[in-house]
Structures are given as C-alpha cells and as structure tokens.
Nucleic acid binder design. Structure first.
Lengths: 328, 328
DNA sequence: TTGAAAGCGGTACCAG
DNA sequence: CTGGTACCGCTTTCAA
C-alpha cells in the first residue's frame, strides 16, 4: 500500500509538500499541486488513518459493548447510538459479549488499548469487578439499561421501578386481586429486581400481596414454562405482570392452554413494546420503552463526557408510555 | 496517558527493556522485571494499540456495513459474524448507513483508510457505483444478502429464486389458482426480483399466471396497504406470497379486514421465519432463512480471503427450510 | 513555496 | 542481559 513517501518520490517533491496538498493547506504552487495529485492517482494513494491517529493522538473511536445485538433493546439502541455518533464524526467499535459476563471486562480493557474516546456499555448485571473495571477505565464509560449512578458511573436507564408500580395500578384498576410476577435472573437489577419491587409496592399500597415471583430468562419459552407452573400453583391468579413482552407472550400461551382467556380470566402486562406485542393474540398490553432514545442519549451523554463539557448529568431516567391492548 | 518511555524513565531502564518485559520475552533479569512491573503499576501504563498497529502494519480490524441493525436479518447476522470474528481475534468496526445508499461508498473508503483487513457488506441494492467501489477496495469485501458474484465479489446469499419457486409449489399444491406477490422496491434483486421470478416460474410451470406484483417497503404497514388494495382489484385471489414475513403479517391483517379467512380463503406465505411469524394469528407459514449462518459464513469467507487461503469459493448459497403453520 | 527533521508509541535489530 | 537506534506513516515546526 502506497504511503506519502511513495507519492513524494513519484511526484519529485517532499513528504511535507504531499501532506500539504492532501490536506488542502494553502501555500502550495498550483503546478506542484497538479503534479502531486497526479502521483496520488497513479499509485492509488489512500491516507493511513492509523498513522494519523497516532500522530494526532486522536482516534474518533467509540467502543460499544452489548450482550448480544439481536434483541429488541440492543438492536434499537445501537441504531440510535450510531446515528448520533456518526453525526459527531465518531466511528463505532462494536463488541458482543454473547452473554459472557467476564468479556465485558476484557473489552473495556481492549478498547482502552485501542484508545477509544469513550465506551457505551449495555450491561445486564453490575457487580463489583465490573464497577472496578469501569472506574479504572482511562476513558469515560456510559452505562445503558442498568443504573451505575451510585458508583458515579453516568447511566441511561428506564424507569423500571415506576413501570412496575404502574403495572400494579393498571391490573388493580381492572379488578385484579391475585397477581404474580415473572422475571429473569435475580441479579438483573433493572429487569428483575426493580420492576418486581415497583410492582410489589403498588400491590402493598392497595393492601394486596404479590402471590409469587418466578424467575427465568428472556425467552418466550421461559415465560411459557413459568406461567404454566404458576397457574397450577395459584388457581385464583387473575393478573400477571411479566418483566418483558417476550416472557408475557409465552405466558399468554400457557394461560390459553390452561383453558383460560388471557385478557379476561387472567390479565397480562409486559414491558418494552416489542413489535411481537402488537402482533400476537390477544394483542399484548405493555409499556413502550424508547430503546432507540436510550441509545441516542447514551451517545449524547458520552460525547459530553468526551468533550469534558457537562458533568452535571450523572443519570438519565427515560420515561415510558402506556400501551393499551387486549391482554389488559 | 503513560507511554513506554515514561515507564522506562520511572524504572530507570530503556524502552527496549520495558517492551521486553511487557511482552514476556525471555532474557530479562528477574530483578529488572520486578522494577519494570512496579513502574507499570505505578503509572497505570496501558500499551497503545494504535502505535502497535502502525508498527506491525496489522490492525486485526474488520469493517461491517449494514443498512440498519434493528432488522431480523442484520441483527442475527451481526451476532453470527461477531462470534466468528472474535474467535479469530478480529475486532469489528460497525457502520450503519441508516438506509442511505451512498454511505456504503463512503464507509468502504473510510474503512480502507482505517486499514481494516476486510469488509462485510450487507447491501440492499448493487449498482454500478457500488460495484466499482467494492472493486477498488484495497481489502477484500464480502457481500451478504445480495449476489455480486458476477462481478467477482464473493457473496453469501440465500436461495431467493428457489424460495419463490417453492412458495409457488406450496400454494399450488394446496389448490391455489389466483396468486399474487407483494415485494419491496424493484432494485432489491434478492428480495424483490429473485423471489418474484422464482414464484412466477413455478406458476408458469403449472400453467398459471401471476395475477399481480405489488411493491412497497419492508414494513408491516406496507404489506397491509398493498394487500388491501390488491384484494379489491383481484376478488378471486386465493394465494399470496410475500417477500418477507413482516409484509405477510400486514397482508394477513388486510385479508381479515376484508372479511376473509387467511389460511382458508386466502393462503399466505412469507419468507424469513421472523419470530413474529410464530406469534401472529393465524400463525404464518414461511421459510426459515438462517440469517445467523449468513453472518457466520460471511465472516468465514472474509477470513479466508484475508489469509489469502482459499479463493475457490466465490459464492455461497444458503438453503432454507419450510415452516408449515396455519396460514398455508 | 518547499524541504529537512523531529516526534507520536511502539518493535526489532545490533552492539556491547 | 540491556541500551541505542531506525523505522512504521503521518503532521508540524523551522529554516531555507
């Protein structure tokens, strides 16, 4: 691959002159410009960004770490953040941990070596090691989806406690008395802990108690299995809040199989407003989470930190909207 | 940020020695190793990958260009390809064109400047300019989803003509006589042209003719609108092949609204096996496209080209499986 | 208007 | 076992 030096030799000028022409700096004779441009064409010269980055000590690179990209939350999020970052002239280094927790640590380290200017991390679980890794990162890290603000890590989160609270209110206002929650692994603070706690608070507020809190994973099948089991154990169940729409869709299937009518015998609520929710039968009542905005704001927040502009905001809580459909 | 030089000064040794310690090269006295390690700790030294890349003339970087990440095909694909690339020690530079065609050209250029070792391109439309850009790329480009093999661009494609042909066979075997196709923009060779042509061929083979070929975009709503319109114009319609599952789901809705029963009055077939297809009502008969495998194989093919190993394969056609559900 | 040279942060060779 | 030095490809003074 041709370098400045090659072009210079070919054009019979010095490297400096070539550099000046390439970068449109003024103070170069037109004739030499022409010579240089010809030489550039001739050897198909393309500037080496790696060398530039080294020299300028600036990479315009942002690292993004996700557990997987094929989920509603992350794929929408990545679309949102790439739009904002591109606008700012940044490029995206993407890493998927494929749900392997310790790879988050690895990539924070790798991205630092690559001299990214900042990192956007979609975490599922914030433990001590991860917090340490984030804190020892030389470049700013913004967390999306989980709250790291108590460790002074700027975070974009959804209003997970309130969504649980609202879910409780919605079910109760429709007359539910015996309600349960189906979540995910317990160490997922945002999705399992906060949503269930908000839900339980609402019930308590209304002198009701949560009948059960089942835990599984993010799949439709997990929702199906846990709901099936729970329906056996809680025959009076009339309201079910699921931590995600996919879980809720599985639950709806289980309810139907049990000979009950979802939306009538048992009301069901999900979270996220996955496209699936608008397509299933009965259609799923849920809460719209603006995952694209989460990505966009994560990017914006990171850009602010990179520019060392505003350090005012340490946490951004995104609101949600209520989506009323047939299941509740 | 600390450099080798800083560490060397701190430890009272030369850069070379520090480099040796960092890279675990043998032939360094234990005592100096200790000194150096202490200095590394002390100033929180992290090797600069940019400098390394420049020196070694190797970036271990692969560029990935997608129209958007939040689609079934691309998000699954990206998950597939990141797994393979990570395995090979490569890192992923991701660019989303956000459906802006000319950005594909830009990013090919930018990625070349960044000295990526290869590019995986999810294209929707292969025109002259794009082909030229790909051909003038200094590093190998692998196309996913569209066929560039006639231009000698290695490609991973799905068997789009045959899927159309099979769709025809399926509908005909169920007794359909009046069939139509709903596709996307006509310049999408894989999704619109090939699938419709295969479909038409099957009909022709059975002495039937395609009643219409409507064109819209990839949304559910587009499928809905086009189907609604087509149902008005073709009252005898009994079979509908849609270029994607989301289009088919829109069509099903239109059929229901017209007072007809999808899967009975009008049989419907989609393509892709989007999760939506298993959840809608009636459930959608479709074809499973292994989008994750497309990504994986795109990555593998690219790695081969990078290693300059096998140049035998210029095109890989992925097969599909038939998914029988209620709509057909 | 142009060229020489230093330096960004590493690696690798050669000398001691 | 360790240090000096050249070099990767570019930018940026400084001098001519």
């Amino acid at each position: 691959m041709a370098s400045l030096h090659d072009v210079a030799r070919l054009a019979g000028v010095s490297k400096s002159t070539v550099s000046r022409v390439i970068n449109d700096e003024y103070g170069v004779k037109e004739a030499t410009k022409v010579k240089v441009r010809k030489a550039v064409e001739e050897c198909g010269y393309l500037p080496n960004q790696v060398a530039k980055d080294l020299k300028s000590q600036k990479t315009n690179l942002v690292g993004v770490i996700v557990p997987r990209v094929s989920s509603h939350a992350t794929s929408q999020g990545v679309d949102g953040l790439t739009a904002v970052l591109e606008q700012a002239g940044k490029h995206v280094l993407l890493a998927s941990t494929h749900q392997t927790h310790h790879k988050e640590l690895e990539y924070i380290q790798i991205f630092n070596q690559k001299r990214v200017e900042g990192i956007i991390l979609y975490a599922t679980h914030l433990d001590n090691k991860l917090v340490k890794a984030i804190q020892s990162s030389a470049v700013p890290v913004v967390l999306v989806g989980q709250d790291g603000s108590m460790f002074n890590i700027p975070s974009i989160v959804h209003d997970d406690t309130r969504v649980g609270f609202e879910a409780g209110n919605r079910l109760i206002s429709k007359g539910c008395k015996h309600m349960g929650f189906i979540g995910v692994q317990g160490d997922d603070i945002a999705v399992d802990k906060m949503r269930s706690e908000g839900f339980a608070q609402s019930l308590q507020f209304n002198d009701l108690t949560l009948q059960f809190h089942a835990r599984g994973d993010f799949t439709i099948d997990s929702g199906y299995k846990l709901a099936k089991q729970s329906l056996k154990e809680h025959t009076k169940l009339d309201g079910l809040f699921c931590a995600t729409d996919r879980i809720a869709i599985g639950a709806i299937r289980a309810i139907q199989e049990a000979g009950l009518v979802p939306g009538k015998d048992v009301l069901v609520l999900g979270v996220g407003d996955d496209e699936l929710a608008s397509v299933c039968t009965p259609t799923l009542s849920t809460f719209n989470y603006a995952f694209d905005k989460a990505g966009e704001n994560g990017a914006k927040l990171l850009l602010d930190r990179i520019e060392k502009k505003s350090f005012e905001m340490s946490k951004m809580v995104l609101t949600f909207t209520t989506i009323d459909r047939e299941s509740c």
